[in-house]
């Protein structure tokens, strides 16, 4: 099995050299994988950092008033959406390249790069907006601890940051939709 695989791989590489005059040692599908991995991993990391920042503030507040648990949890969960958006884009990529169907599509390097770049908006914006939304959430948690009547405003503030994660998600989806496979 192994030599056989090497054989087809070499063949493919030679074909590539014929076509372009240079040898790409990578396959299109690898790039698509990289895109999905970045989307899921970076956006998830941003969310994790954000949720962590909000969480540490939240636990501090709850030592004084444990009854705020529900609200604090809500605010802590807000920076968590970036990770979900990232996973969503990663999932879309995987369905596009037919991983779940069992027979992955054969992608050219061009197509692979297109998919990789489609993933970048949510990967980058997800990472940074997750962190900053976490900071805003932490601030909001401080706000509700002192002025519980301002809960509405406290919840809307972090959502302002999330706007850009949503827009990045939108960008990623639209770009991905444009890739012809």
């Amino acid at each position: 099995m192994y030599p056989n695989l090497q054989h087809t791989y070499l063949q493919k590489t030679f074909k590539e050299i014929d076509k372009r005059g240079i040898c790409f040692m990578i396959d299109g599908i690898v790039l698509a994988y990289l895109g999905a991995a970045l989307a899921i991993g970076l956006a998830g990391s941003g969310s994790a950092i954000g949720v962590g920042i909000a969480g540490t503030t939240g636990t501090g507040i709850m030592t004084e008033d444990p009854s705020k648990f529900g609200l604090v949890l809500l605010l802590q969960a807000l920076p968590g959406t970036q990770g979900i958006y990232g996973l969503l884009v990663g999932f879309l990529v995987l369905t596009r390249i037919g991983i779940f169907g069992g027979t992955p599509a054969v992608l050219t390097v061009d197509q692979g790069l297109q998919i990789l770049f489609s993933c970048l908006p949510i990967a980058i914006a997800g990472f940074f907006s997750g962190i900053y939304q976490g900071k805003t959430s932490a601030g909001s948690i401080g706000l509700i601890s002192r002025r519980p009547e301002e809960t509405g405003k406290a919840v809307v503030m972090p959502a302002m940051v999330e706007t850009y994660a949503v827009l990045a998600l939108l960008g990623s989806i639209l770009l991905l939709n444009g890739v012809v496979i």
């Binding site: 979900i84 958006y85 969503l88 827009l167």
Partner: peptide, 13 residues
């Protein structure tokens, strides 16, 4: 446009 993105997100997840 967030309306659209969120709508899509629900369905895809």
């Amino acid at each position: 446009s967030r309306l659209f993105a969120l709508s899509l997100a629900t369905g895809i997840i």
